[in-house]
Design a binder for these strands. Structure first.
Lengths: 320, 320
DNA sequence: CTGAAAGCGCTTACAG
DNA sequence: CTGAAAGCGCTTACAG
């Protein structure tokens, strides 16, 4: 491995001068030129490890997410990575499978690796990030709040669900059901609340039209089936994410129903669907923006931004 | 930050002894107990940065892929991560967007961070991994070969395409087209070759039935359109990945065709499709297995495995 | 077996 | 402005 001393002796200067040149501090010519030439010729790569140890701070951030195979989180990761790269930070992807134990292991890893900070899409609102906070690392919550005072980046789930439901009302649907996520998940209940508000505003009764799934495909199918087989079935549905929407469409299809005759609004797109029935209202979940906004907040904190925790709300768009 | 010296003084021993205990070397009791208790009480997390600098070796591997938003690569990443975690290695995800410049930057990063090795799904067969090799880092190629002597993990694209095509022949389809990836991509041409071999074995003429796309949705649609609008259109098609298959299905649908009447075989599943027409032959691409096999090879090399480069071929399965 | 000490490759306060 | 030296937190060859 070529070290800073190799460059120094080749350029005929001290290691301190090499360090200064390579970190953009002013030096007298021709030292700058000599150092740059020597570094180039030797193919010098400064050791980020040594640098991190010295500075007690690595240009690395952790992105801790529940499920790397969920397209929402991969887009989010994409947004984080692009933003981090701009500032020269590397991103370590940590997959928790919604397991609090694994989440905790990654907190410890982030500390042990001297990572500058962590972005957390929490497995649960009770996730305890104090190991990170105690070690002085910046933390930003994404998509959901945690029970601690943290910078947070979310979308306006209530508003989006309300608007999408209103579009269905305006299209003349009479009984609009809602399939959302687990009761104890913030984003799920916000979406249900938005749907309920729009329903009440339209003078309809939401009773019996709300289903809780688990954001996976099968639960969407089950929930839709339950609604369709009920005594007074709906003529439209608002679905809390795209995987459950896929399941719901399957349940509809097995009963010969399909949009646009049956109304539908969905959080997230159906990008990988070969055949998307027309007339589905898409609530675009801005996963990439969520990621890049969170990364921006985190990087600002890392660079020393002070002040109370902020919550950034990223815009959703309705494509109808 | 609590250091090894804090633990040492609390336990009344030297830092060397703490290090030995925590690294599983034998020490006389009650030192072991004292050290473990002190570490526990202080919530000691050894600095992986200091350790890496000292050992010239970090328990971190880079996973360098062209596109994190492609489900094939996310499944692969999942496989890598699970396998790496077993051995206590962290995975840094590096997204190249098929850009050789970014790929090269990540090679340098891997060296600068003292990473133990890299897993590379190469942007091109001309990717030059010598910066890694020169620095003594282990490298394994995934999905495609590179023009260097490297451990490689691939699937048997030729065999899989041949078998899938044969299933279509047995189902009575007469003119079976093939939509594969770019001509200069190894996996794409292997798939085309398998299709061609099966076609010839069945006594059919493959002329005019091969299309090259770019593994994205639009190119699948275009290619299918071109075939369907030709003078002598096919009655079946083998498609080189799932995104192009989605496009192909769209083109078929716009002409009122759909499986199972129109024959179809696809590399990769259609997991996110709400409505998958019946009778599609699925060639299961074992992305997770590819990832875990590659990680295993890499970890073995990191631990010092010697010998000539190996190529591991992961099994594909046909679901018909 | 245990401890004192050196050294991994950087950065920066300090002296000149 | 530049250089010598200390120190970040570990591990391990060496001496005892």
């Amino acid at each position: 491995m070529v070290t800073i001393y190799d460059v120094a002796s080749r350029a005929g200067v001290s290691a301190a001068t090499v360090s200064r040149v390579l970190n953009g501090k002013k030096v007298r010519e021709p030292y700058g030129e000599l150092v740059r030439a020597a570094a180039e010729e030797l193919g010098y790569q400064p050791s980020r490890t040594a640098r991190s140890l010295r500075l007690q701070h690595a240009d690395v951030i952790a992105l801790i997410i529940p499920d790397i195979e969920n397209p929402f989180f991969t887009s989010l990761a994409r947004g984080v990575q692009d933003r981090a790269r701009e500032d020269g930070y590397a991103v370590v992807l940590c997959n928790t499978d919604d397991d609090p134990v694994r989440e905790r292991e990654y907190f410890d890893l982030a500390v042990a690796e001297h990572m500058a900070g962590a972005l957390l899409a929490p497995a649960s609102s009770t996730s305890d990030v104090s190991p990170l906070l105690k070690a002085g690392r910046a933390v930003v919550a994404i998509d959901r709040h945690v029970d601690q005072d943290l910078d947070t980046v979310i979308m306006d789930n209530h508003r989006a669900a309300l608007d999408a439901t209103t579009v269905l009302v305006e299209r003349g649907f009479r009984r609009i059901a809602c399939i959302t996520g687990p009761e104890d998940v913030e984003t799920a209940s916000q979406r249900a609340d938005g749907w309920r508000a729009a329903t009440l505003t339209a003078g309809r009764d939401p009773a019996g039209l709300l289903e809780h799934g688990d954001f996976r495909m099968d639960s969407g199918r089950e929930a839709m089936r339950a609604q369709l087989d009920g005594a007074d079935p709906p003529d439209a549905v608002v679905v809390g994410n795209s995987l459950m929407a896929v399941g719901a469409l399957q349940a509809m299809a097995s009963r010969g129903m399909t949009p646009p005759d049956f109304g539908m609004a969905v959080f997230g797109d159906l990008a990988f669907a070969p055949i998307v029935p027309a007339g589905i209202v898409i609530i675009e979940t801005p996963a990439r923006e969520l990621g890049s906004a969170a990364a921006s907040l985190l990087l600002a904190r890392i660079k020393g931004a002070e002040g109370a925790s902020r919550t950034v709300v990223v815009e959703t768009k309705i494509r109808a």
